[in-house]
Design a protein around this nucleic acid. Structure first.
Lengths: 189, 189
DNA sequence: TTGCTTTCTTAAGATATCTTAAGAAGAATG
DNA sequence: CATTCTTCTTAAGATATCTTAAGAAAGCAA
């Protein structure tokens, strides 16, 4: 069992060694080169990825053909397109590697089997979903209330080393600012 | 067992009649008059409410003392302050009845007991949290990309009869528009 | 009914942020 | 090394939305 995934699971539930043995069989390690797609829009998102290395972005094309970034993903975060993965509908979102990526993947049928064989995993993913929801709610309210500069500064301080790994125009897209204006903001004291 | 809650549960999991019997014991019906508080900010949110009747709003006071509405709740929706309920920390949010409210409540310890006695409930709330997350994500992206008029119109069409039940200044707060500007918007063709 | 409180509208000036266009700097490729 | 592609910056005019202030309407209490 991958030690990072094991450490992650231990934060939520206790599993017997035998249960970890079962789990191992369900996760497959995959690699993606920089710029490769983990998921292409229009496809159903079949996998939930646990990132071991690298950085990804999730984006869709808006009415003007601009790439709108909705999320980033980094080491030891789950990455998937929830809507498409859960409801098995075509994804509006594309997931692309910003750096070379190594990830553990599990597909939906496998995950359902896991729920059957190890009911505690149902509990784990309940708690993951709840925490994700809480984070998403906090973030939404912050995005609504904070101005561009505050949004940028929060990103800089809350994910250390992040803005150095991602081109500025992607940061701008995620923060919902024009790249030109982000450039202005960064100069302000 | 309340038929609305039963119908809700049936959408996610199958429970034996005996399991419903167990469940009944955990839910308590409560009533709140218009303007009463289901939760006051500063308190830990002890309950998850399943609304049977009426309307509530969730808001916090911003730096200028303005009430910022983050969510509404209506019949057959779960209402709680996730962050406070899950993490047992004081809530920033106040929950207030906009109309007279009737709701089924369950507290956190009871819910944990339910998870032990009826593990299928763990599955139910996993799926509820996942769907809630999906809705929250969709909503966040829509709020970021749509302008004020589009946000208003979406609210009007997606929750029928809703704007008639809620004062306009609350709608404005939720949509993150000044009440004056909402008034303008409503006049546009 | 009358008055008091709550809610909604109108208008004018202020501001954050966008759009467009262009050029500069940096990175990648032949 | 020269060239091409990608990313970042600068500037000027445009626009959505806010703020403040005031008055109009509507709802509720007495």
């Amino acid at each position: 069992m991958n030690p990072h995934l094991k450490a992650y699971i231990e934060r939520y539930v206790y599993l017997e060694p035998a249960e970890y043995e079962v789990l191992v069989g369900y996760f497959e390690e995959k690699r993606f080169k920089k710029k490769a797609l983990l998921l292409e829009s229009g496809q159903v998102c079949r996998y939930n990825y646990f990132l071991l290395q690298g950085l990804v972005r999730c984006f869709y094309l808006d009415a003007n053909g601009n790439e709108q970034i909705t999320q980033f993903g980094k080491e030891f975060w789950w990455v998937t397109t929830m809507d498409s993965f859960i409801n098995e509908v075509p994804s509006l979102i594309t997931i692309q590697a910003i750096e070379d990526v190594r990830a553990l993947s599990i597909n939906k049928e496998q995950l359902e089997e896991v729920y059957k064989k190890i009911p505690k995993m149902e509990r784990l993913f309940r708690r993951v979903a709840e925490n994700w929801l809480i984070a998403q709610q906090r973030n939404s309210h912050f995005f609504m209330k904070a101005n561009s500069k505050e949004r940028y500064q929060k990103l800089v301080t809350s994910i250390p080393n992040f803005v150095q790994r991602v081109p500025q125009y992607m940061i701008a897209s995620y923060l919902d600012i024009s790249p030109e204006y982000l450039s202005e903001i960064r100069k302000l004291p």
